[in-house]
Design a protein around this nucleic acid. Sequence first.
DNA 1: GTCTATAACCTGATAGAC
DNA 2: GTCTATCAGGTTATAGAC
Lengths: 221, 221
Amino acid sequence: MFSPNLHHDTGDAMTDDFSTEQKIKQAAQRVFLKKGYAATRTRDIAEEAGFNPALLNYYFRSKEKLFEIVMLENMQMFVAGVVGILTDDATTLRQKLHILVSHYIDMLQANPDLPAFMIGEIRDNPDGLMEKIGFSKLPPDASILMQWRTLAGENGTFKPTHIMMNLIAMVVFPFATAPLIRSRTAMDRTAFSALMEERKELIPMWIEQMILAGATTNPKS
Amino acid sequence: MFSPNLHHDTGDAMTDDFSTEQKIKQAAQRVFLKKGYAATRTRDIAEEAGFNPALLNYYFRSKEKLFEIVMLENMQMFVAGVVGILTDDATTLRQKLHILVSHYIDMLQANPDLPAFMIGEIRDNPDGLMEKIGFSKLPPDASILMQWRTLAGENGTFKPTHIMMNLIAMVVFPFATAPLIRSRTAMDRTAFSALMEERKELIPMWIEQMILAGATTNPKS
DNA sequence: GTCTATAACCTGATAGAC
DNA sequence: GTCTATCAGGTTATAGAC
């Protein structure tokens, strides 16, 4: 039903990253990411890529089709590699947290507009593209879940969902609100980046504390 | 330069909440909040309010003017009352955290679309309406800052900015991503609300831990 | 494959009757 | 104050020349 290349194949086995099609896709990625779907005009994309607006329709048929492609790739960026990290039997829980947080912060430093874009899309298209993404659920015996239970005890006092929320929130939210944070604290882009680098060490530490705070052995008892 | 009522006064002293003007504003609030500025058509607002599209221009002259008004009120919701909480000499730090978190969660339970809306606007209009908001900086001797220093020691190992980020992130982020969270965890709206109610107790606890973890007395020493 | 010209459509805003 | 009808402007998409 869905094909990334709507037009005929080039005949070349390898995909040429400098082809017009690729350039348009990359330009679209940048513009959609910065402004969102509704606020983006196809002319913006053509201008950004330095091409004629008609080429967009030649290669991708419509703005919407192009958006779906870019969208899908952006979403996959969010989940790429994560399952591998979480199911690795060779790493400790502490190591997993470190690797996961570093992985995400690095990715977001390179793509700082991604969080706001995703949040906008989640809103505009609640059930639309959400399923298309390979957000495959973890198997119940995934390494991280076993380790989690060991640390928190079988009957931790609050749900893992809370901790997951916190982990993602602490990593992603600062990027989503970066313009506001920077203007409020008079940080420039470099200072903000440095702050996020600090968080690579801090967030895993905080998360570990949270897991312990919810462990079976309640401080009050 | 900016006046909420562009047309002549009604002559009535009290503002009638059921006037056409008010109804349009409320409908606009709902639609803008759900879809953002760019994706909203003036016809959507008229339909939502059950009125003729022409009335929007009659009362507010343009879509943009109407948006500014609604926007401003939304943003003020975010900061309303917070300074008062943070500078109250009669409450402990722990109490302040509790009150602040409860205050925000209550407000967001009533306005769950607000976070995604704000994030979208921060992106689309980085420096535009940000200053109009009464985001008045705290005085350096604000009660909460003194109490913070007492708890963390004068030279806490990491910046208060981190903790502030975490506090806001843990409260706001779940709402910004609620549709995704609910679909991923098979929660209905009620279950999600209940989860956020739990967080009224949990977040202040976590934050306190974080402050202690960054206190002058380092666990390692 | 790429460009120019233009069609087809949509959206915000206004004029004028009631 | 509210409605109908319509305009002006801008946007996506296509037809057809090169």
